[in-house]
Amino acid sequence: MTKQEYALWAQQESPKSKGLGDILRAFLFGGLICVIGQLLIFFFENRGAGEMAPVFASACLVVLSAILTGINIYDNIAKYAGAGTLVPITGFANSMVSAAMEFKTEGFILGLGAKMFIIAGPVIVYGVSASVIYGIILFLLG
């Protein structure tokens, strides 16, 4: 049997992800998080936070996500929400807190400190790189 033939068999026998359902749930949960964020922005604007309101709102979402991760709830929501909880800033917080919790047993420096970025690290690296490229393009065109 060739690798190509086997790949076809493996594909035939492997159950598929529920495409539409997964997308819909991700949309609903992701949207819900954005609505919460927007409400927080309105709240802080009303309190006179001005331009800082979105920053405060982001900070609140990060803290909320960190707490939900710490009390073992976030991953249960994420199981249904999928990309809906992964993509917003809450997913970023979860990836750092979960890694920190996991590797705490290996010590605070080489465990928690170093491995905290094991999932979030690439997001930071490529996020910063992309913003640098964006900045250069903006500089050249502007």
């Binding site: 492997s14 159950p15 991953d75 929400a81 999928g82 909880t85 992964l86 807190v97 996991e102 094991i118």
Partner: peptide
Amino acid sequence: ERQFRFPLEYGGQRTPT
């Protein structure tokens, strides 16, 4: 999980396979 995949509390989805 730690060795082969993600931290336990990481909010990822598992594939059907």
